[in-house]
Design a binder for these strands. Sequence first.
DNA 1: AAGGATCGTCTGTGCAGCACCAACTATTTA
DNA 2: TAAATAGTTGGTGCTGCACAGACGATCCTT
Lengths: 170, 170
Amino acid sequence: MFRQLGRLGHMSAPPLDPSEHRSGALLDHLARRMRLRSETVLAPLGLRPRHLVALTVLRAGGGTSQQALATILEMDSTNIVGLLNDLEAEQLVERRRSPEDRRRHVVELTQDGAKRLSEAECALAGAEDEVLGALDPNERETLYELLRRAAATTSPINCTEVICAGDEPL
Amino acid sequence: MFRQLGRLGHMSAPPLDPSEHRSGALLDHLARRMRLRSETVLAPLGLRPRHLVALTVLRAGGGTSQQALATILEMDSTNIVGLLNDLEAEQLVERRRSPEDRRRHVVELTQDGAKRLSEAECALAGAEDEVLGALDPNERETLYELLRRAAATTSPINCTEVICAGDEPL
DNA sequence: AAGGATCGTCTGTGCAGCACCAACTATTTA
DNA sequence: TAAATAGTTGGTGCTGCACAGACGATCCTT
């Protein structure tokens, strides 16, 4: 017995090279937890999680073309149309023709939109308390700031396949 | 004037009370960006994002019942079955009967599982570089640590509706 | 002026990730 | 012995997307 598993039974954290620390799965996990709660909290406000993401991006980014929005959200631009239709139907967002290029729409948050967004954020306090309960206010603010900065950059999807050395033996 | 909304027109960042900073939308946004990349990176390894989440939870948590896993992942327990079937089919995970309660399965990461997980994390380096490009290594480690700690706690879904004061007047 | 590219729109199709329900077995607890 | 619990199986259906095709409007070339 104990043949091939020299893993000592049950412990929590096998020594992990910090350079291999990946936030992806954690991000996924926490986002799910948050989204499940957001859905029910946001419903009475007539919003869904993706609407909140769009509003947040618009608040951070000012006037943006739908194309740009598709790039930022990394969604197909045909789906952006419907998303913006939802928001515009409730006057949370405004589509204006760009004066420089009349093909483009400049999408912008309205006052109503900003207000609704802030209401939503307020309503989400409880949800966040549950999901981020392990973090104190300072840590939450740090987290927020890191996420905000990361989300503020647009990255192309390249992602060349990398073969990692040092893993394959045994 | 400037009653409750001091925001004018179009600028990027209206003054936002730090206590209203919500990470939910950012979490959602970044998780999506990450997931889109993960899918293609993970595919050659025979994994999908949710598999990675499960493996990560198992590495962090040691032996867990499927019930507990459902609670942690906040997924319906019937879907946990299929998820674990996938993982067990590739021997990344082991279901053993619990000695104390023979109804239960104790799910545990195998050596193969730990190896595959670490390979996957390694392969995701490029994806993370793209998504978290705005953060330097120190900040990424901070982010990882915050996410890890937040994900380590299990929170019940209560989320009482809260009406925020100071928002409702026109 | 003419041709091609680009932006947004519309419609339609299809898939993946889930939740939810119902029924069943094996086991534990009351 | 009866009732509750853990896991499994199978089925249904919703939602959020991606993707493709076609179209008008508007650029940008040449």
